[in-house]
Amino acid sequence: MDEAKTGRGSASDTLYNKVRNEILKIIIERQIGSNELLPSEGEIAELCNVSKMTSKLALNSLAEEHIIYRIPRRGSFLADVDLNKIRSMVDSNSTSNYSAVKSNYLALVIPKMDSYCGNIVRVILTAAEAYNYHVVVKYSDGISETEEQILSEISKVPEIMGVILFPGDNNTCGIELLSYKVHNYPIVIVDRVYKEVEFDSICHDNYQGAKDAVSYLIRKGHSKIGFISKSISNVTSREERYQGYMAAMMEGNKRIRLESVQTNDNMVLVSELKEYLINNDSLTAVFCSDDYIAVYLYYAAGELGKSVPGDLSIMGFTDNEILNFIPLKMTTVKQPVEELGTQAVEVLMDKIADSSRPPRTIRIKTDIIERDSVKEIKITQ
């Protein structure tokens, strides 16, 4: 057999495989779909700085593997092949625009680097390392447009085999996520569940955690319990906490006062929280959908001369490190990140191994952390 054709045992082996590899990368980078036209032999030769013969041999090889098919005088077309298979075929050690990237890479997209996200990153890095994967971390700043751009860029890097996404506050499925779904790209959503499109999702059980928290307040003798959150619109984690609050109050036969339930983005302003407390002076406890609000409410109460927990009991959610910066130890709902991060990596590994697996939603149990911000009220007969 002609050595130049097989490429074995000669310098042409490196050149031939480089061109073959570049064609695979072009398919991914340009997101070429099934039965769509590939660049011509001449275009590939020019892009890779090789002869037309070399580009032709590389295309013929991919045709023999049924990755592409060739029609005389019309060109080469992508066969009906899953793009994940093409990604797995890419030789990341070959010379290319991504030569600095090693094989076995995942991408992790997070909205910010606070203590909660930082702990998730730490766990995911450790869990991925156990599978011999490196992790590229990207920050969206919680901005939907930035998140979309990052996802678009990631999908065009062949060496990245899958994505773990912690979305920002906007819980609407964007165009790039829909593209991931259509192309069956391995992705796992962390701490969110999309209603309109089903993805693999790992999240804490926000509903049960909130319900347990409010039930805990009721057991402590509280009946006039308020609820404060940033906007719950299109953010399933907050919506589920609101639903958990409502369920616990109804099961406990407690009256829900509409003025005591506030869900808008201004509820992180001390001035707004002071007004809330003034308008709800009869409340003995407030359940906050996150620890930041709980901290701001603590200071708002102090400015009004209310002591915590003497005059008002406050309970948060997440067990964020921000609680370390106030004088009072705050009772809260802890969201364990070890299981969250580990499960996210395990589910992504399953998806990479078999992209046809049906999506799963895994909910992780939360825990109540009892501290000093909740007072027990003795119920008089």
Results as ranks from 00 to 15, higher is better:
S115L: 05
Y133S: 04
Y296C: 08
L24G: 07
P358L: 04
Q243P: 02
A210H: 09
E29H: 11
S313G: 11
P186H: 04
P358C: 03
K5D: 10
D212L: 03
S260P: 04
Y194E: 14
A353C: 12
A285I: 03
S260E: 13
D291C: 02
Y180N: 00
D141K: 02
I143S: 00
K334Q: 06
I362C: 14
V333Y: 00
T14S: 11
G174Q: 04
E370W: 00
E338D: 15
E41K: 12
N324F: 12
Y245V: 11
V19F: 10
Y105G: 14
V190R: 01
H134Y: 07
Q149C: 03
N253S: 15
D367F: 08
S223L: 01
N280I: 09
C288F: 07
F166N: 04
S201A: 15
V308A: 08
A79P: 02
E198K: 05
T380I: 13
Q343N: 09
D354W: 01
Q208E: 01
G142T: 13
L125Q: 15
V261P: 15
I150C: 14
E321Y: 03
M349H: 09
I71L: 03
S40T: 10
D114T: 09
K52Q: 14
S179N: 12
N266V: 08
A130Q: 12
T342N: 14
G75L: 09
R87W: 04
R122E: 05
L348N: 10
K5F: 05
G316W: 02
P186V: 03
I143Q: 02
L177E: 15
C288K: 07
K224V: 15
G75Y: 04
V295Q: 02
Y276H: 05
S61W: 02
P158S: 13
T361Y: 01
E148G: 04
L62E: 06
K365F: 14
S271P: 10
S88T: 11
F227Y: 14
M330K: 08
V286S: 07
A344L: 06
E275K: 15
I379V: 15
E321I: 06
K334A: 02
I150Q: 13
S313M: 06
S34T: 14
C173W: 02
Q149H: 13
G209H: 00
D265H: 14
N104C: 00
A210G: 09
L151K: 10
P327W: 00
Y299D: 05
K274N: 12
S40Y: 01
G33I: 04
K254Y: 00
E339A: 13
S237W: 04
Y131C: 02
